[in-house]
Computed example of a mutant assay.
Amino acid sequence: MIRLLAWLRGNIDGVVALVLAMVVGVLAVLDLIDVDQVNAVVLLVLGLLATTLLRDRQLSAQAVRDASAVQLLYGPDIGHAHTLARRDTEVWIFKGGTGTYIRAVTLRACVENARREQRPLRMQLEILDPANEPLCKTYAQFRTSLSPETGRSDEAWTTERTRRESYATVLAACWFRQRFTFLTIEVGLSSVMTTFRWDLSSSCVIVTQDNPNTPALMFERDKPYYRDLNRELVASFKQTRRVQLSRCEELPLGNEPTVDEVRGLFDALGLGLPASFTDRDVADITRRALQPRNPY
């Protein structure tokens, strides 16, 4: 009964038209109404049918728009979509693991595009907190589970590597901030791991995963969900531990920062490097920050 009532409520105009047609048809056969009355009812039925058709057409068009709101991207299309998203954007919001691809490609490319066009650029990066060792261990285990057999050319994911990658992203943010006046960049350290990477530009949101066999999702700005995902990223960033990047202005970094410069920077930021980190470890962080390898 509930299903029947729901069906009647959704198709009331068609039901009314059908009932009117049947009633008028019976009355006309019995010669109980004249021709003028029949014509009037026919016009009414046609009007109801036209209304039904217009409503169905509108619903169909809406369904098509909703279906095209999300695009699936595979293989090279993912990189191409990122390239187009970086081209004219004035904002880039990232949420993910350690920001490896951000350092290797996105940050540098966005700064170069903005400098060439002499326009401001705002970036917001949410990465794993390198001071949270259990969290970094969990992330390393997750990454290892995706590709348990590491080849000779691939570097294994460990707790220490995860921490260095996050530290490198902070260092890269400071380095670029000092070299491009119109770059406004924020870094938030998250205490929660995510298995997705979110990249939001002025034109779209691209959601990827670390599994290369999984397609990426793209939501364009003028389609549904872009605003919702933007709101989600802003809300998530507000829950992070904010890095006070403004303090880096007091400690200029060289084109190739020294170990002492890097240590002093992290101390000033309130992110003092672990005592177990040797000078070689610090140099490795610098290499990952300024000479990153594109993981894809």
Results as ranks from 00 to 15, higher is better:
274 P>M: 08
167 Y>R: 01
80 H>S: 13
108 R>T: 09
261 E>F: 00
83 T>Q: 14
76 P>W: 08
258 T>L: 00
68 S>I: 09
207 V>K: 05
54 L>V: 14
174 C>L: 06
40 A>R: 11
250 E>L: 00
289 A>W: 02
269 L>Q: 01
72 L>T: 08
185 I>E: 02
110 C>G: 04
254 G>E: 07
92 W>M: 10
199 D>F: 06
187 V>L: 03
206 I>M: 05
128 L>H: 03
135 L>C: 06
101 Y>A: 08
106 T>V: 15
25 G>I: 01
142 F>H: 14
244 Q>K: 11
185 I>L: 13
192 V>E: 15
147 S>D: 15
103 R>G: 02
171 L>F: 02
75 G>R: 12
15 V>Q: 01
194 T>A: 05
5 L>V: 06
169 T>P: 04
54 L>E: 12
242 R>A: 14
34 D>R: 06
228 D>K: 11
89 T>F: 03
36 D>W: 10
53 L>H: 04
284 D>T: 13
286 T>C: 13
20 L>A: 11
35 V>R: 12
179 R>I: 12
65 R>W: 05
186 E>I: 01
176 F>Y: 15
34 D>N: 14
188 G>D: 02
171 L>W: 00
242 R>K: 13
217 L>V: 07
58 Q>C: 05
181 T>R: 15
2 I>E: 15
32 L>N: 04
102 I>T: 11
178 Q>F: 11
139 Y>D: 07
9 R>M: 07
240 T>S: 11
155 E>T: 14
260 D>V: 00
63 A>M: 08
179 R>C: 12
221 R>H: 11
224 P>F: 03
172 A>I: 01
41 V>N: 02
294 N>V: 11
150 T>M: 12
39 N>C: 09
134 P>N: 07
30 L>C: 09
89 T>A: 03
250 E>K: 01
11 N>V: 03
111 V>L: 05
248 C>A: 14
228 D>W: 07
165 E>D: 11
142 F>D: 08
39 N>H: 09
170 V>R: 00
221 R>M: 06
208 T>K: 05
294 N>M: 07
172 A>C: 12
82 H>M: 12
83 T>E: 15
80 H>P: 06
97 G>A: 15
92 W>L: 15
155 E>I: 12
93 I>G: 03
182 F>W: 13
126 E>A: 09
189 L>I: 05
217 L>H: 04
263 R>Y: 00
290 L>E: 05
199 D>P: 02
213 N>A: 12
74 Y>R: 09
256 E>R: 09
171 L>G: 00
256 E>N: 10
126 E>W: 01
193 M>C: 08
75 G>V: 03
284 D>S: 13
200 L>D: 02
219 F>S: 03
131 A>D: 10
132 N>G: 03
287 R>C: 13
173 A>K: 01
52 T>N: 08
148 P>A: 10
35 V>W: 10
201 S>R: 01
216 A>T: 04
217 L>R: 06
53 L>R: 07
276 S>K: 08
271 L>F: 01
195 T>Q: 10
21 A>Q: 02
64 V>C: 04
290 L>A: 07
48 L>V: 06
190 S>K: 01
110 C>Q: 05
250 E>H: 00
87 R>Y: 14
133 E>S: 10
45 V>R: 02
76 P>C: 07
21 A>N: 01
